[in-house]
Write a protein that binds this DNA or RNA. Structure first.
Lengths: 183, 183
DNA sequence: GCCGATAGTTAAGGTGCCTCAACAGTCTTG
DNA sequence: CAAGACTGTTGAGGCACCTTAACTATCGGC
């Protein structure tokens, strides 16, 4: 009766995913990832990093010996890369296709990158590539979409079956303020 | 240096969002939400519910007096409704537009529903409505998209700037198994 | 080769969210 | 209206993740 709890059963947690990414990023940028670098990169204390490294080592995602550098294992590398891919796809989709403000796009992407299944990421990549492509239909889409209705009241009748009883848009827009999204 | 930590600064946590939704759902279905109902609905212990209700009451999202029913406050209701809207939009987008398996679609939606910003939800709703609509361009899209390339190697040259150095699709597909997503 | 600066670790403590076990309030029914 | 059946609460405890404070290892310069 509860998909929601599997949240905590993910192979790695939100935190872990970000630690892995940090290690990967530092390795790329500086050639090595040390506890202090990771701490600074993520804005956490060094002791927090130490204990997280222990946890990740237990899971076989990194290797780390006392006072040494941190290395990603194969599994850790794959995980970091997958999260990174997911984030890239999401950010692009949100900002370029949906047209959401870049700041919000990357913030949202950062929140959910490690939670979307690879299945979804792959399809999102496909859609994004398609809609950005030279394909004539994609070009038509971009043109037509720019001017398509924004609010439910402008939908063609029946187009709003998504909404059901209450207009989804209304309940969402209340959070933002009409001005932001155009009447 | 860390958007990621705001994860924990969300107005409500993943858990809280689901408790609120449970209360709303039970109120609709049964006319009232009691501790035991909520516990069963979410698959958690009753004591867990009790303490979460205390937390939500402190935040002004529900009212609950000892041994009584739980009621959503205005704020709680708005939050529950917004989460619900977000989930509906997400699920529809993932399954109908992206064509992801329904099980996965609702699982993913459940994971991220409370994390996506209203800005993104609103735009996602707009895109989904548009692509499902009778609009001629939408119809063309559906036709063209069905047969559009799935893997990077099939992209038109330059279409893959999204991928950058490594093909995003490759790193994602590894997680699923080629068969699932078509060559 | 010792000393201080820097980097890293451990220990103790806090919060969120969950559990189980024990207790307390409420309801049903004879 | 009391006994037993439910329903709900409290308390103790656990795990994940974070912090600060105090300690320890390592390294560069004299």
């Amino acid at each position: 009766m509860s998909i929601w709890k599997r949240f905590s059963e993910k192979e790695v947690s939100h935190s872990m995913a970000h630690y892995l990414q940090a290690v990967a990023a530092l390795k790329t940028d500086k050639g090595h990832a040390r506890v202090g670098d990771i701490a600074e990169h993520l804005g956490v204390s060094k002791s927090g990093v130490t204990s997280m490294m222990r946890a990740l080592q237990t899971r076989g995602l990194v290797t780390h010996e006392r006072y040494g550098c941190v290395e990603l294992t194969g599994a850790g590398q794959r995980l970091a890369q997958r999260t990174e891919s997911s984030r890239r796809v999401l950010t692009t989709f949100l900002s370029e296709i949906l047209g959401v403000d870049e700041g919000i796009a990357s913030e949202d992407a950062c929140m959910i990158e490690h939670l979307v299944s690879p299945e979804v990421s792959v399809e999102l990549l496909r859609l994004t590539s398609f809609l950005r492509s030279q394909h004539p239909v994609a070009a038509q889409f971009r043109e037509a979409y720019r001017t398509s209705p924004r609010s439910c009241s402008e939908h063609a009748p029946g187009a709003c079956d998504l909404c059901g009883a209450t207009c989804l848009r209304e309940s969402l827009v209340r959070e933002i303020g009409e001005s932001e999204v155009g009447a």
